[in-house]
Design a protein around this nucleic acid. Structure first.
Lengths: 101, 101
DNA sequence: CGCAGTATATAGGATAACCGATATATTTAA
DNA sequence: TTAAATATATCGGTTATCCTATATACTGCG
């Protein structure tokens, strides 16, 4: 994914952002990539998003329900817990940046 | 730095967080490391924070004013602009996460 | 002065995110 | 039924963050 921001390259935030999006709504890979594009301005490539989804699945945080060529991803119980934990950590790290004028 | 959060390792956010902290207050390396520790829960090691500062200096975003053994870092004009740009990007990417209940 | 503590610095290496290219399966269009 | 488009998948490689040493400079204290 092209770097849209010189200073913060968001490396390491992809899995978190995926989990958070799935906590709002079940989606498939393409849909997730588009949602992330809306936010970051650059769309994660197939070679980025699918390995990330595989990793999350291997870690038991999401599971995929296949329907034809589309795989809809849903958070597992562990995934929901992880979103909570990760979000708390994220907020503790950055809330003052967001809240500053 | 140890991973405090399984899903989001914050890789790539260090420079941004340093710049933002410096936009609030001029600080030296140790001080920055402590401020980051307050937020992330883990303190960046010397081998992490000083190369990051060097990089920012090389890019003309900060400059260091040496006073004895202490080097106080200040944002340059370019640094201030970059903080603005990076912050706008950060907020666009993550504000819905920070604002969700 | 000599020693401990603090702040800065750098080299070397591990990790992992991400991409480019490529391949496969399914659906739709023609 | 064949072609095009969509969705998923994997591999190899690059890049940059971050860490573990280790080293140096300055300060203060005895």
């Amino acid at each position: 994914m092209k770097k849209t921001c010189g200073t913060c390259d968001m490396r390491g935030m992809l899995s978190f952002q995926i989990l958070w999006l799935l906590s709002k709504k079940s989606m498939h890979g393409e849909e997730l990539a588009e949602e992330i594009e809306k936010r970051r301005g650059a769309k994660p490539k197939a070679g980025t998003i699918y390995p990330a989804l595989k990793e999350l699945k291997n870690n038991g945080l999401i599971e995929g329900k296949k329907d034809g060529k589309i795989i809809k991803y849903v958070l597992t119980k562990d995934g929901k817990d992880e979103v909570k934990r990760a979000k708390a950590y994220f907020i503790r790290s950055f809330k003052d940046i967001l809240l500053s004028d």
